[in-house]
């Protein structure tokens, strides 16, 4: 849409170089915890980018992205549990720990869930849409909280990461690079998507749905398709996060998680692909930093909340928008 200033491209390349070199830097600094923090950042970036497809590009205020993120996570955990006990899920679906089976399964689950939630919630718009997506996500939170065979309220541990032929994902560095590769691939796919015929229609719907009807476009189908794509992306992120943390809990589905993902998108810059990545890295990093302040760590959400209010009131276009204005 707009030209990207050349200096910004350089910053992007520098960021990419930094991400590529990060595990080595962590080793040099003697702090391997960096790698897992960075992995979390990238996974949240993936979740935020997928949310931005509907939120930023489609203009649909969805407050339930955690539903897809959580369902992706639970797919990994549930398939692991059934693999461990050798009892098929619902008596037919065998468990698995194969990355190339589990991840597509998670995305499928996210897509199906998004189709169901979207089909209902997209019958409304605006504030109703927002409240409905929030409510359905919360419904899943209650559902998974009550499933005691999968840990109920407390969640459950997934003792091992999924297996990828030829890669040792137990190694944090290998897993980090895999996540980085997936994020870059997702960004490329999203880039093609928003520039395609479909992406144009989606952008048109955001700007003026009445106009779209007047050129013969039935918005509902396109919004639903975008919602399903976003749901699959969210589920992918959730599945990766459970692999990273080796743990799943209903917290992944809690409404504040949806809120956090929205903050990432808005903080970084909605309606762009790089914005949500910047937002996710910034917010995750900030939470990590604030969490280290002795005595105040547990109240870090105060700072996050305040930041959010300020960004909404005064920061148009988020960090990415600010960067672009500075560099122009």
């Amino acid at each position: 849409m707009d030209e990207t200033p050349a200096s910004l491209r350089w910053i992007g390349l520098a960021l990419l170089a930094l991400l590529l070199a990060l595990p080595s830097l962590a080793t040099l600094a003697g702090d391997p915890a960096w790698v897992s923090l960075a992995t979390r950042m990238l996974i949240y970036a993936l979740a935020a980018v997928s949310l931005d497809i509907i939120l930023g590009y489609g203009g649909l205020a969805c407050f339930g992205h955690a539903a897809f993120y959580g369902i992706g996570g639970y797919t990994v955990a549930i398939l692991y549990r059934h693999w461990q006990t050798s009892e098929p899920l619902f008596g037919v679906i065998p468990g698995s720990t194969q990355f190339l089976v589990v991840i597509p399964a998670a995305m499928l689950a996210g897509g199906v869930l998004a189709a169901a939630i979207g089909a209902l919630s997209l019958r409304t718009a605006g504030v109703q849409f927002l409240m409905i997506t929030l409510a359905f996500a919360q419904m899943l939170f209650f559902l998974f909280s009550s499933l005691s065979q999968y840990g109920g309220n407390d969640g459950m541990t997934v003792r091992r990461r999924n297996e990828f032929p030829g890669l040792d994902l137990r190694d944090d560095t290998v897993f980090y690079y895999l996540v980085l590769a997936i994020l870059l691939a997702a960004l490329f796919v999203a880039h093609r998507l928003v520039g395609s015929r479909f992406g144009r229609v989606l952008g048109g719907i955001r700007q003026n749905e009445r106009r779209m009807a007047a050129i013969g476009v039935q918005s509902y189908r396109y919004k639903l398709a975008a919602f399903v794509i976003a749901g699959m992306g969210g589920a992918l992120a959730g599945a990766l996060m459970v692999n990273q943390a080796r743990f799943v809990s209903p917290d992944m589905l809690f409404w504040t998680k949806s809120g956090e993902m929205m903050i990432m998108v808005i903080l970084g810059g909605a309606g762009t692909l790089i914005g949500p990545v910047i937002g996710a890295i910034t917010l995750t990093g900030l939470e990590d930093l604030l969490g280290r302040i002795p005595g105040w760590g547990e109240h870090k959400l105060f700072a996050i909340g305040l930041l959010l209010v300020l960004v909404v009131l005064f920061g148009r276009g988020g960090l990415y928008g600010w960067l672009r204005r500075r560099l122009r």
Binding site: A61, F63, G259, L301, I304, G305, L307, V312, L313
Partner: peptide
Amino acid sequence: LDQVLATFGVSLC
């Protein structure tokens, strides 16, 4: 969306 995010921030605070 802006209204929701700002008031969400308020509720966190």
